[in-house]
């Protein structure tokens, strides 16, 4: 199928394979079509159908609430049935050279491990190596579950053959129920599309690093820290990580944070914010290199970053309310929008 996207600045032409989402076809050809969640919730990928027939794979997608007319659709959920001409009222360029162009792939679940009562560490071995930037995510699907889910990479490796994820169980979530059912998912084949996401970190940014993560939002932060560590970034710039969870039993990665603190020295500070209780003294004593505080993660970050936001680049990830609260806090502290990068786990 031929797809023509009329953007404000030019027209893009590309092929879509049968069943392939229009967004995926365009991105895979290096066309920087607009998207954010890539999973039907945010509405950023909306386009208007000018001609042709499309199938909507998820007519109930929450992102459809930002559509204004019947001929608008979400490129991340729709598939072309015939040749399609669509309009995107935005400037659409080709991706910058050097950025990782996403593609469809596959892999298998290589290991799973419970990190807390509701968080699982999952390794996926990919059939082909994947290049991605620190802070990116992939879409992942399994045969038994409708639709794909966004999962952020925890690791950062060149030509990665293994992708590591942390996944939090969402009550009544369809993939969550499949994953946390108690049945071992070791060896399950998965389909992949990626890498995706604009919340990327490059050492050349040369700014102080601020990461504010709510819950499993810590995934992409780990990838960023890994990249920064490989580049000895914290000998030149400060790094502040804020990891927000509810209670002491929800926290993980403390050993890894301790190792990073040792490896990166004074430049890196890690703070765990507990929203629902005072940090228990056992925890505080066991992890002397980590700071613990009580409060919502954006409030704790605000407190500890007072007067130090002037030269930061901020990475925010996690549930939408946590990310929104952090964005608000940073903007009102005069951090400019081009220094705020985020993924909402919507």
């Amino acid at each position: 199928m031929k797809i023509q996207v009329n953007a404000r600045n030019r027209t893009h032409l590309f092929e879509a394979s049968p069943g392939e989402k229009i967004l995926h076809s365009g991105l895979a050809r290096g066309i920087a079509l607009p998207y954010e969640c890539a999973s039907g919730t945010c509405g950023t990928c909306k386009a208007k159908r000018v001609s042709g027939e499309i199938d909507d794979a998820w007519p109930d997608a929450p992102g459809r609430k930002s559509l204004k007319s019947a001929d608008e659709f979400l490129m991340c959920q729709c598939v072309a049935r015939t040749d399609v001409v669509a309009e995107v009222p935005a400037y659409v360029q080709m991706m910058d050279t050097g950025s990782c162009v996403p593609c469809a792939g596959a892999g298998r679940i290589a290991s799973t491990e419970m990190l807390t009562h509701d968080v699982m560490l999952i390794d996926v071995d990919t059939d082909a190596p994947m290049e991605f930037d620190a802070g990116q995510f992939v879409l992942l699907g399994v045969d038994e579950v409708e639709g794909m889910r966004g999962w952020s990479m925890v690791n950062f490796d060149r030509h990665a053959r293994r992708l590591r994820f942390v996944v939090r169980r969402k009550p009544d979530g369809v993939l969550s129920d499949w994953l946390f059912s108690g049945t071992s998912r070791f060896g399950t084949r998965v389909s992949l599309f990626g890498p995706l996401g604009h919340a990327t970190f490059y050492p050349s940014l040369g700014r102080d690093l601020l990461c504010i993560a709510g819950g499993s939002g810590i995934a992409g932060v780990m990838s960023i820290l890994s990249r920064a560590e490989q580049d000895d970034y914290f000998s030149r710039h400060s790094g502040d990580v804020f990891f927000g969870v509810r209670t002491a039993r929800d926290v993980y990665f403390l050993e890894e944070f301790t190792r990073l603190r040792r490896a990166c020295g004074q430049g890196l500070t890690v703070t765990v914010a507990l929203s629902d209780e005072e940090p228990p003294s056992a925890l505080v004593n066991d992890y002397p290199l980590i700071r613990f505080d009580r409060g919502f993660v954006h409030e704790v970050a605000k407190r500890h970053m007072a007067g130090r936001l002037g030269n930061v680049i901020a990475y925010l990830a996690g549930p939408p309310p946590a990310v929104d609260a952090s964005i608000r806090m940073l903007l009102l502290s005069r951090v400019t929008a081009d220094n705020i990068r985020y993924d909402k786990f919507s």
Binding site: T44, K46, S66, K68, A90, D324, R328, L331, R334
Partner: peptide, 22 residues
Amino acid sequence: HQDVCLDEGYFDGQLLTCHQHL
């Protein structure tokens, strides 16, 4: 950008920010 209502955004006295894509 995407017809989002700006009154849901942020205003800090100098800059107006749309909450959707900043």
